[in-house]
């Protein structure tokens, strides 16, 4: 699906009967989710409820742990990611991931942004500067770093590092951005800036964001998924979930009766 033009699909990610085991421990139970294309969806739930596991399944990075077994189906833009002719490298190109702790590579800012493009041979000498500028502009970082693109990425503040980690995904034009608690290592100001950025990227990318921060889910997402013990309890529009949750467990979690 690298170069073909896919007609706009309704759902960017669709799973059916997705089960996942870590060894003998079952982490996901029959997860059926349809994540709409081009919006921000947040996933909430107590620790260990499977939301990060779900996220890591969507780009199949979870398989790096050898003892993982998965059944069921995940479609990204209508294509089965477990299909026989699927190239994992392509899955990871189309589905980018941002981690809890910003993890810029120990390279310059410019080389960080170009890393993905270089990996997939999408850059030439003449397009290099343009790629760097456009990616950094998209994450609202260009103005503050344009004069020091050769500086080490690790010299940036945490907030800038996290923005850079998002920026380096963009040059390969992913369809989906997965974010695993992207703000939990940041201070309130950084959190606000990254949330603002997520909202900025909305529409161009489908964004799935795992968060422990209820207020963040409420502020920065269109739809919200509530998971508990490896099962999806509720998936609705965010304002609905927070105003009128349909399930007892959702209401209890949102009100902070357990977490």
């Amino acid at each position: 699906m690298a170069n073909e033009v896919t007609p706009t699909v309704e759902h960017a990610i669709e799973t059916s009967k997705l089960n996942l085991w870590y060894g003998t421990f079952q982490a996901l139970f029959d997860v059926d989710l349809a994540i709409k294309n081009g919006i921000v969806t947040s996933m909430i739930g107590p620790s260990g409820c499977g939301k990060s596991t779900f996220l890591r399944s969507v780009n199949r990075i979870v398989e790096r742990l050898g003892y993982v077994r998965t059944t069921g189906r995940i479609d990204v833009h209508g294509h089965d990611i477990f299909g026989e002719d699927v190239e994992l490298v392509q899955v990871r190109k189309q589905v980018g991931m941002v981690f809890q702790r910003p993890n810029p590579l120990p390279l310059s800012i410019r080389d960080n942004v170009l890393f993905g493009a270089r990996t997939h041979r999408l850059e030439t000498k003449s397009t290099r500067d343009e790629i760097v500028q456009s990616a950094l502009e998209q994450v609202l970082l260009w103005d503050s770093v344009k004069d020091r693109l050769g500086a080490r990425a690790t010299t940036l503040s945490l907030e800038e590092q996290q923005k850079l980690c998002i920026a380096r995904l963009l040059p390969v034009k992913p369809r989906v951005l997965l974010m695993d608690e992207p703000c939990s290592a940041l201070d309130p100001k950084g959190t606000e800036a990254v949330e603002e950025l997520i909202w900025e990227l909305r529409g161009q990318y489908t964004i799935l964001i795992v968060t422990h921060n209820m207020a963040q889910a409420r502020r920065a997402s269109d739809e919200c998924v509530f998971m508990l013990m490896g099962k999806v309890i509720e998936h609705t529009r965010t304002e609905e979930m927070f105003v009128a949750p349909a399930h007892r467990e959702t209401a209890d979690y949102i009100e902070g009766r357990y977490g």
């Binding site: 990075i61 490298v89 890393f115 993905g116 990996t119 980690c165 390969v172």
Partner: peptide, 8 residues
């Protein structure tokens, strides 16, 4: 992990 997640 960062590299693998970019498809390297």
């Amino acid at each position: 992990e960062a590299c693998w997640n970019m498809g390297a």
